[in-house]
Design a binder for these strands. Structure first.
Length: 466
RNA sequence: GGCGACGUAGCCAAGUUGGUAAGGCAAGGGUCUGCAAAACCCCGAUCACGGGUUCGAAUCCCGUCGUCGCCUCCA
């Protein structure tokens, strides 16, 4: 079955066809680094990480570029207040963000370009725009002329006449059209600035992404991603600029993730209701955050609250439970159980790709994985051996891996304490046989206090780290 | 005011080229166990509301109510 992808540009799903066979050029808008990244950023990064991983699973070679906006008003503002250099501030949050991504098991981007590294490219582009009449200079600022872009608004579904610019913010009256936007900004005293034909200044917000696309991925790319709050004006403007320069359709597929909802409203900087990623990670594993993202569709809003976090903690334990070894002294499961297990492996594989092929339906894919989990656990409880469980567990590991879940159950397996714990569990077994339950329960409780969970069964006792 | 999305069991959520509703969490019952834990089994919805199209609609159309996003920086 072919992969189908929803395209914001066409507002419908279509078969996924790349520009170059077997290769995907993908660009995802990264953060403006003036503060710690929050779980909303995490959602977006996770969504596109999963998309990337699935494309790789499908056999594509994926070139994945995520930018950092390291110069803009907010960075300058914040740096001034802290009395440090803007670049210093940006550097700090870039490093922090990279650590955040790592803690979420997000694959490193092929490239992480920064706005400040693209200045020459940007100046060249602004010049081209001016030469072609697509932009004009006023007192050191350069604005993009939206009226000459005949299909301006095609991504966001807006028409220039319908937009009431200035209803919420005062319009710069030097603009020919209120919707014109800056591609180059004149630097004020004390602001970071680069020399340009229009005097010292810095790039506008949208042009940097266009520049990084051109210099790192080329004139046309396959996938351009980001949060749906970027559709307008950011991506709309990116399209206008880039296509004014190249004269070619920019991105084939525009993909946008829904917003993370906190107490019913979007989590955002301006609302001040943020949960930083590093704060979340202090209390939960990266897998939990990822699982939350996976349980709903990437284009839908994601409910984020304690109840949901709890539910996903449990769901994660359930997923991990299927990776546990066979019962001690397992004698082998009945043939019909093994047959069903084998069948479920195939069913799950098929359902997994069917779901993922349909615009990355991770929730559906997870559903089929849980079916496999239940079957594995059932087989184990019926006495399946490790060898009998192995193929199913391999599949489980493979598919959850495609979704980027780590499912690390026993990180401390090779601890030097193992032998001692084995000894205690063994002794406890003897105590139980002598029906000395008071002491055997004490051992269990004390070990639990140390993070060791003992589970008894008819075949004997097993233990694992919490 | 304009553009767009959404409203499925207690909670989260999949399913929308129409054919009688995945999965997870919670609750309840059961198996196993000395107890506990884990695992397994059983158990819940006619899909916001009102019309319409159709042999047949959660899925299509119209209306109503509600929630949310964008139109300003934002993943």
């Amino acid at each position: 079955m072919a992969l189908r992808v929803y395209n914001t540009l066409t507002r419908e799903k279509s078969d996924f066809e790349t520009i170059e066979k077997g290769k995907v050029r993908m660009y995802v808008c990264g953060p403006t680094v003036y503060d710690s990244a929050h779980v909303g950023h995490a959602m977006s990064a996770l969504v596109f990480d999963v998309i990337r991983r699935y494309l790789i699973y499908k056999g594509y070679q994926v070139q994945y570029v995520m930018n950092f906006t390291d110069v803009d008003d907010k960075i300058i503002d914040r740096a001034n207040r802290l009395g440090i250099e803007p670049i210093e501030l940006a550097e700090k949050y870039i490093n922090e963000f990279k650590k955040d991504l790592e803690s979420l098991n997000i694959l490193p981007a092929t490239e992480h370009p920064r706005a400040t590294e693209e200045i020459d490219e940007i100046i060249g582009m602004v010049q081209t725009l001016i030469e072609r009449g697509a932009a004009y200079e006023v007192d050191g600022d350069v604005f993009f002329r939206v009226e000459q872009a005949k299909d301006y608004g095609k991504l966001s579904g807006r028409k220039l006449e319908e937009m009431n610019a200035g209803s919420r913010i005062r319009v710069d009256d030097r603009k020919e059209n209120p919707m014109d936007f800056a591609v180059w900004k004149l630097a004020k005293e004390g602001e970071p600035a680069w020399d340009s034909p229009w005097g010292p200044g810095r790039p506008g917000w949208h042009i940097e992404c266009s520049a990084m696309n051109l210099s790192h991925l080329g004139q046309q790319i396959d996938i351009h991603g980001g949060g749906n709050d970027l559709i307008f004006p950011h991506h709309e403007n990116e399209i206008a600029q880039t296509e004014a320069i190249t004269g070619k359709p920019f991105a084939r597929y525009w993909m946008h993730n829904g917003m993370l909802q906190l107490k019913g409203e979007k989590m955002s900087k301006s609302l001040g209701n943020l949960v930083p990623i590093k704060e979340f990670i202090e209390q939960h594993s990266g897998d939990v955050m990822r699982l939350m993202v996976l349980t709903s569709h990437y284009r839908s809003p994601l409910t984020f609250n304690n109840e949901v976090i709890e539910a996903n903690e449990r769901a994660l334990e359930r997923l991990a439970s299927a990776k546990r070894p066979a019962m001690p002294e397992a004698k082998g499961a009945p043939g019909d159980v093994l047959d069903e297990l084998t069948k479920q492996v195939e069913t799950t594989r098929q359902a997994f790709t069917d779901s993922m092929d349909e615009d990355f339906n991770t929730a559906g894919a997870l559903g089929s994985i849980f079916d496999l989990v239940r079957m594995i656990n059932l087989a184990r409880s019926k006495g399946a051996t490790d060898a009998q469980l192995d193929p199913a567990q391999q599949t489980l590991t493979e598919l959850t891996g495609v979704l980027g879940l780590k499912l690390e159950t026993d990180q401390k397996t090779s601890s030097s304490a193992d032998a001692f714990i084995d000894l205690l569990v063994e002794l406890r077994q003897e105590l139980r046989q002598e029906k000395n339950y008071a002491l055997s329960d004490t051992i269990r409780d004390r070990l639990a206090g140390l993070g060791v969970i003992i589970e008894d069964s008819a075949q004997g006792s097993t233990w694992r780290w919490e």
